[in-house]
Nucleic acid binder design. Structure first.
Lengths: 352, 352
DNA sequence: GTGAAAGCGCTAACAG
DNA sequence: CTGTTAGCGCTTTCAC
């Protein structure tokens, strides 16, 4: 079936393109009779507006790009899902670009971006430096996560140091002293890991607990890495009574390794995660974790981005979004406690 | 900075647009000297080709749409990630559209699709009927999953009935007789659930085990629903020695509920999942599950789709992709067995 | 090898 | 309220 164009509809209805265009886009100032007549032609011909034509004429693509490391990671899947929902409400489609945390992929997204690719970019970098990020100013871009943004760019994140501090405090308050940190990268530390480790160390220091480098267990990401590395450490006789994990995946792996090793959680060893992915409520025992306020994160970021798309020109805004420490069975609030029932309840809450 | 267009580069280099265009697209038949000269102008001006202009001229958008229920579901996140990877290799970007399994969203994707939205669609419907799907023939579309496709449309799936049969057989072979099925929808059954229940019932019937409707436990999806419903059933005194779950999320929930109830898995009760999401290896005990060959699924579907985009016109091809029954701790192969160590090993394998 | 001109399908002034 | 006329930025015949 030959493509039917705006002009075809106009001919069929005996009006001008402009009028058809008005009808298609629900513009005011079209008489009811006219509207009906045109609509009849549209239906008769099976006309569908061509987005590309519109995009070229308006200079807008109607979509925003979301750049994240990996969609298969539950945290980013949830983030993407939220972005997709909220963006639709705002009238945008979402193009998802996975960077796999690779520098060249990040650069491709941020710098070599062809025009007409998207109207704006929501980007969570993990390798690019501030300077590199700064080297572009064509497409509106809002940064997610804790990388330091160029002065002109908006950024939304949570306070990683504070949250890591809170979670470590939580373990210390429960009487734990040999607290490992698990889940950071084996090679080059990501910004995220660095900040979380900093918060962990700060909390230890505040309580006069020496930071033992042996207790920093890198896994290279994923639950499997944590199963392996924590398992090896325990097998090697490492004595610990708590594990603060970089993220929930690491925590689930650590949990598994501890159980394999015959340890009771939380009695023998407490474990905490980060992100509050769906599994934290369903694991056994359920997982104490840091729950960032993703609704607010996404809402703020998308708000900033659409403002920029609409032409806002002002220095970069940096917003810190709240988080919550959700205490569940793997590290209950207020000391020891059995692995008994009871859903998680919130304790500390981060601030903006 | 004013947008720099192809014409600007041409002016700057003192050549025609055609030549610049040739250079930009790496076309042959451009002298080296010419190419170098034009490239210098491109760099000097910081020219980026405008995709929309190209799209309008070529009639191709360079992107494909992926329509799935929810990105936040691990299975679909992994699917989307694979599609995104493979599509990039094929030169396409991916536009992800979440339908939330809602009819109107599915219709919007399949029928009201504006032209220029994408070059083709990979779609996993869960509500639309075959007839509705058939009512469109503009955009190339390949169906994922087990819905019956219109005659003209390609479709790729696994054999749900056979796989459900296998998994149930697996439990029967382990000596289980009171086998529940958990995780289907509370209201309207999805095609997927129907097929899996059919395979489950067929296996029971083949072994002379009566199908007890009380053993069909709907949850409405998600792990939480399974925790709740299985928990309630056990609390009400339901006697079962195995649970075949509709998907891994339900299985993780069922596992949690069983453990809360004080049951040992797999000794007192065996549990199986479906999809082989990352958590199946990390849960405690690890989860026996059906692992569809996603690489092959995605590869085949994308292959079909790109062929259609390139103009292939022939009746719909229907491909069934293999799966594997991965026996892990929650329902080990060969009878009872403790909850000991050992990663999962594969047993039965589905066919194409 | 390279240039000129004609669209791709739509929107947006500006008249009327 | 409706019609006319230019483009948006690029690719593509078809000459040169």
């Amino acid at each position: 079936m030959a493509r039917v164009r705006l002009q075809d509809v106009a001919d069929h209805a005996g009006v001008s393109m402009k009028t058809v265009s008005n009808v298609v886009r629900d513009q005011p100032y079209v008489s009811e009779a006219m509207r009906a007549r045109v609509q009849r032609s549209i239906d008769a011909l099976g006309y569908r507006p061509n987005l590309v034509g519109r995009q070229l004429a308006t200079g807008r693509t109607g979509s925003i790009a979301l750049g994240i490391p990996r969609l298969a990671q539950p945290y980013f899947a949830r983030l993407a899902s939220l972005v997709s929902d909220r963006a639709r409400e705002l009238g945008y489609r979402v193009l998802i670009v996975e960077t796999n945390s690779q520098l060249d992929a990040e650069r491709a997204l941020a710098q070599r971006l062809d025009a007409g690719f998207a109207d704006g970019v929501l980007f969570q970098p993990s390798r690019m430096t501030t300077e590199e990020l700064a080297g572009r100013d064509d497409l509106p871009m809002v940064l997610l996560g804790e990388s330091t943004p160029p002065a002109s760019m908006d950024r939304v994140c949570i306070d990683n140091v504070a949250a890591a501090h809170d979670v470590t405090e939580h373990l210390i308050a429960a009487g734990r002293r040999r607290i490992a940190f698990v889940g950071h990268e084996v090679e080059e530390l990501s910004d995220t890991s660095m900040l979380r480790i900093a918060g962990y160390e700060r909390a230890l220091a505040a309580h006069g607990i020496a930071v033992d480098p042996e207790l920093l267990i890198a896994t290279g990401g994923g639950a499997e890495g944590a199963v392996r590395e924590v398992g090896a450490a325990l097998a090697a006789g490492l004595e610990i009574d708590a594990i603060a994990c970089r993220d929930d995946l690491a925590a689930l792996g650590a949990l598994r390794a501890a159980q394999r090793h015959g340890l009771r959680v939380p009695d023998d060893i407490m474990i905490t995660g980060w992100d509050d992915i769906f599994m934290t409520e369903v694991s056994y025992p359920s997982l104490t974790t840091i729950s960032p306020n993703l609704d607010e994160l996404v809402g703020t970021a998308l708000g900033f981005l659409t403002e920029r798309i609409d032409g806002l020109d002002q220095p970069g805004r940096h917003v810190v979004v709240p988080y919550e420490l959700v205490a569940r069975e793997s590290a209950p609030a207020g000391g020891g406690g059995g692995t008994g029932a009871g859903a998680g309840t919130s304790a500390a809450t981060g601030t903006a």
